[in-house]
Computed example of a mutant assay.
Amino acid sequence: MSTRLAHSAGGFIRSIQMSSEDVVLLVEGVGDRAFYSGVAREALPNVLTRVVTTAELQGFTKASGKPALIDTFKQLKKSGVLKTSLAGGPTKTFVVILDKDIDDRRRRKLRSPHVVYTVHYNVENHIFEAADVAKAVSCACSLDLEAVASALGHQEQWRRSIGRDWAEWTAYCYAVHRNSVGVQGYGRDKSMFHPRAGDPIDSATQQTIVSHATLIDANFPRYLRTARRVIAEVLARDAHDLVFNGKWYVPWLAHLADRAANGAPYPKASAAHFRACALATINYASAVLAEVVRRIRTAVHGTAAGPAAAPSANSP
């Protein structure tokens, strides 16, 4: 384990001040590092950049994941070191990258030129949008590439069909989190309404889950009706990734592997393995990542220009 994990907050800042990097991107999880390293190379080709995960921020907060990043940002801002230097040396810039989730719909987005949000619900949406899904599944499960490609069909149509198939589950999760109902939703790694990816909704299970949420909050049926309208609207714009948890693509990747294998044995892949294989196929110059690249480039160059650049770092 790296000794920098034991740094105090002050020690961490000093280590950055003395480092060769000009920009530090703070990201939520270890799994995010590879993606944002690739984005940084595309967005900031002539800038020395380091990607730091919440695991390296123990001196700032006892939280983890997104709450840890928010705590760290607030402490860096309060201390006045979002842009920092040591004894007149080169200026170092911190940029915090957060999963959007539905913070935009809840009006909870932080407003700062040093904060960048994902365009979609979370980073996984971007990974599986930009990846070559057939190659990723073929790699993760040691399957014939042509068989996977045939089972997949058109990748973008495949992704959109998933959004439609799990629209009711997405609406339920949206209603839960938009209104802070105390039950599980977006935090689940797959739909609770469907036995497996590709299966129809189990109506009895759905009714039980919705009834439980209604016991917790009697207004839940009204929340759910509103959520269904929201999901229908984003689906009509082919924009389901705005409200669809990107981690939910993983069970669909497993479903795709099963179809491609057609009964033949193959090694099952974990979520981490699917993700790693997907990352290995990404072209960071791809048009689908252009807005992610633009936001990070704008945040870095905008912070150098001062507070006036703040709105462009968090365009909706």
Rank of each mutant, 00 (worst) to 15 (best):
A134K: 06
A134F: 09
K135C: 02
K135F: 03
K135Q: 12
K135T: 03
K135P: 00
K135A: 05
A136Q: 02
A136K: 00
A136V: 02
V137I: 10
V137H: 06
V137T: 08
S138L: 00
C139F: 01
C139H: 00
C139E: 00
A140Q: 01
L143E: 09
L143Q: 09
D144W: 02
D144M: 02
D144P: 00
L145R: 08
E146K: 11
E146Q: 13
A147I: 02
A147Y: 07
V148M: 05
A149M: 00
A151K: 05
A151L: 07
A151R: 08
A151G: 03
A151H: 07
A151V: 07
A151T: 04
L152M: 06
G153P: 05
G153N: 12
Q155N: 05
Q155I: 04
Q155E: 11
E156G: 03
E156A: 13
Q157D: 15
Q157N: 14
W158V: 02
W158Q: 05
R159T: 06
R159S: 10
R160G: 09
R160W: 10
S161L: 08
S161H: 13
I162H: 03
I162Y: 07
G163S: 08
R164W: 08
R164P: 10
R164M: 08
R164S: 13
D165M: 13
D165S: 15
W166D: 14
W166F: 15
A167E: 12
A167K: 15
A167R: 15
E168I: 04
W169K: 08
A171N: 12
A171Q: 06
Y172W: 12
Y172V: 07
C173K: 06
C173G: 07
Y174S: 02
Y174A: 04
A175E: 09
A175L: 11
H177Q: 15
H177R: 15
H177E: 15
R178Y: 10
N179L: 12
N179A: 12
N179E: 10
S180N: 15
S180H: 14
S180G: 07
S180L: 14
V181K: 09
V181L: 05
G182F: 11
G182C: 06
V183T: 15
V183W: 14
V183N: 13
V183P: 06
Y186N: 06
Y186K: 08
G187I: 01
G187S: 03
G187T: 01
R188H: 11
R188Q: 12
R188C: 05
D189V: 05
D189K: 10
D189R: 11
D189N: 11
D189E: 09
K190P: 02
S191M: 01
S191Q: 03
S191W: 00
M192H: 09
F193V: 06
F193N: 08
H194Y: 04
P195H: 10
P195M: 08
P195T: 10
R196N: 09
A197P: 00
